[in-house]
Design a protein around this nucleic acid. Structure first.
Length: 322
RNA sequence: UGGGCUGUAGCCAAGCCGGUAAGGCACCAGACUUUGACUCUGGCAUUGCGCAGGUUCGAGUCCUGCCAGCCCAG
């Protein structure tokens, strides 16, 4: 089999490339160049493995489809999740296009998730990245492989050492992968009774408490409401940030679209807890998500992802928190 | 220029009849994390407690004076 491996130069994707080679497959490593970062490590890994290597320029798509919307969202008082946008609109389309061009059979990446028979499943607990991929087009799934989905990080690292990969000890990447300037938005911070508590220059997220610079005798304060038009943020106790119900837009399914209400488990943050919920589909790719117990951390712009056991059912972008 | 109250780190605030400065918030660092959320861990008043004296083996804690702010009377 000829397989295209999305090679970032990190530990995970490097192990993936090595695995396919050791199984005797033909591997072409593709480094996506978003216009920042360096292809050096990836190139070195591919060279070390004796695999074909090429660089695909995705900088234009990154700017248009990921970075610009990211900043727009913050300006609109939302909390964007660029990784969720990048996967279906830049990363996987670019890798699949490369595979088509090279007449390769499949595409593999180092994501901690699993793919089988056209369905997407979680990776192992504690290392699951399926949340970031719920928005992939359903017809992409049969072409994708995530060989690390059944592994944990220590094993992957151990394997990298065994294979003698030069990046075996490289630190995990986290945080947003592209550079940007934080928009200097002028927020006025108010108490629930309308008292002015302070000002804040920059971006704010619903549920945020650090960086506000406001001391309160009552305890910790969280951003409980954002009014992007007036640039006013209301600060309140943690109870004010808990909610059961979320309105979703841009709902995307990885199963046949349900005709009515479905019960499932759902998550509203990548590293958030999964909890029992109910999804009521609405017209125009909308839905209402209601949890049995109140959830913390929901913010417009973030995604809610639905699960049934290990399987990812779909998800949507949070439009409003109720 | 009558009476009462208060003055402890950036903010709020414990410190009882003196014994060698709680706690919370904020802030900083780290952990966690393919979203800058949340969470967790650690640090955070170096003889210092409005100022100046006094009593005492020892004072934030008692005494005197002063300064500042607040309240009630005027």
């Amino acid at each position: 089999m000829h397989i295209v491996v999305g090679l970032s130069g990190g530990v995970d994707s490097s192990v993936v490339a090595a695995l396919y080679l050791s199984r005797g497959h033909k591997v072409t490593c593709v480094y996506l160049d978003g216009g920042f970062g360096s292809s050096q490590d990836a190139r070195a890994v591919a060279a070390g493995l004796g695999a074909a290597f090429e660089v695909v320029d995705t900088s234009d798509a990154m700017r248009r489809l990921v970075m610009a919307p990211f900043l727009d969202a913050y300006a609109a008082g939302q909390t964007p999740n660029p990784c969720i946008e990048c996967n279906p609109s830049v990363k996987f389309p670019s890798l699949l296009a490369a595979a088509r061009r090279l007449s390769a059979d499949r595409v593999a990446t180092g994501h901690y998730a699993r793919c089988a028979e056209g369905a997407l499943y979680k990776g192992l607990p504690g290392r699951d990245q399926s949340y970031m991929m719920y928005r992939l087009p359903r017809d992409n799934l049969p072409l994708l492989e995530f060989p690390l989905g059944a592994m944990d990080k220590p094993s992957v690292r151990a394997l990298a050492r065994e294979l003698g990969l030069p990046v075996a000890e490289k630190k995990d990447s986290m945080d947003i992968c592209f550079p940007y300037e934080e928009p200097q938005l002028d927020w006025t911070l108010l108490a629930p009774d309308g008292r002015e508590l302070g000002r804040h220059k920059g971006i704010l997220t619903l549920g945020q408490r650090r960086g506000l610079g406001v001391a309160s005798a009552e305890g910790r304060l969280y951003v409980s409401a954002l009014d992007p038009k007036r640039r006013v943020a209301t600060l309140d106790g943690i109870d004010s940030v808990l909610s059961h119900t979320f309105d979703l837009r841009r709902v995307h399914w990885l199963i046949d679209e349900p005709s009515g209400t479905i019960a499932c488990a759902a998550r509203i943050r990548h590293a958030g807890t999964e909890a029992r919920a109910e999804v009521v589909p609405r017209p125009s790719e909308c839905a209402t998500l209601t949890f049995e117990d109140p959830m913390f951390g929901g913010a417009p712009g973030q995604s809610a992802v639905f699960y049934e056991g290990e399987r990812v059912l779909g998800g949507g972008v949070i439009d409003a928190v109720r």
